[in-house]
Write a protein that binds this DNA or RNA. Structure first.
Lengths: 147, 147
DNA sequence: TGGGATAACATGGGAATTTATGGTAGTCAA
DNA sequence: TTGACTACCATAAATTCCCATGTTATCCCA
């Protein structure tokens, strides 16, 4: 599970350290990391190859001509299998750097099954927005399912 | 699985480098590459011989005399088993070059179980279209099965 | 509980390898 | 003998690998 937030530096080669806790999480479950363009936000989403595989299987279940199938294929096209260097760093592909408006700083935000990588300003915006909603509408009502 | 997008050059001999990650994917699973006319788009589709077998089996499920089966057979007839040169390049058959309107640039787009080869302009059109659908309809609603 | 030792982490830089691509020589068939 | 095709070589650029370093967090013992 990916949790917590941290700020790391992106160097000139577009390398960035993935927070150690995220890395351990991947290693323990023997997963490779996939980075892709978020479908909702101007940020990168990171997840496991297993979870990405589930999306791919879902494509075959859909009507091949449907909009959903089309979008999912596009999503695959904007996804990258990422390798770590010995120090736990990855290289962020150009496409993703541009999409998320990243330059020299990245904010990692764990959200459970996956995590987001934001530019600092975009992260700040989204954070403000969440505080705003919280003030106006109060905390979300959560119903946890029993297993 | 085939992921990510990349732009490669097609030379005068119709040779083009298959992106390294696609090649590795094929080698790891000991598959040969099949190229054929996409059934949906003006592009080439590439996949493993195993998956091509699955397509062919799917045709057999159809009424053998139906128009669908006829069309699918005609399309499949234009599929090619492709060999790599020592540098990871392939030669794109003339039929496919023409079908996909390719000349000197190719866009490789991984979509999971297979990949597409587009002309740059056609790729651009499809990408625009996906962004349009995303704006209008939002991301696909997917319910992934629990592991 | 304090403080030094030790390990873990994030980051920088350069060397070695891989990739994409241009070119040439050899082979086979018409 | 020509033309098409294939196999292989060459090279520049991009990518990956690995070593070095400073900084932060953790541990352990007095």
């Amino acid at each position: 599970m990916f949790l917590s937030t941290s700020h790391n530096k992106i160097d000139l080669k577009c390398r960035v350290s993935i927070p150690a806790s995220f890395r351990v999480n991947l290693e323990k479950s023997n997963e490779t990391l996939i980075l892709f363009k978020s479908l909702q936000f101007k940020c990168i989403e990171g997840t496991t190859s297993t979870r990405m595989g589930a999306y791919i299987d879902a494509i075959d279940e859909l009507d091949a001509l449907s909009d959903d199938a089309f979008l999912l294929r596009m999503m695959m096209a904007d996804s990258f299998e990422i390798k770590f260097d010995i120090n736990g760093r990855v290289v962020i592909p150009d496409t993703l750097m541009n999409f998320a408006n990243l330059s020299d700083k990245a904010v990692f935000m764990g959200i459970g099954e996956s995590f987001y990588i934001w530019s600092p300003t975009e992260y700040e915006n989204q954070y403000m927005k969440s505080q705003q909603i919280l003030r106006e509408k109060g905390p979300p009502k959560l119903i946890l399912k029993k297993n």
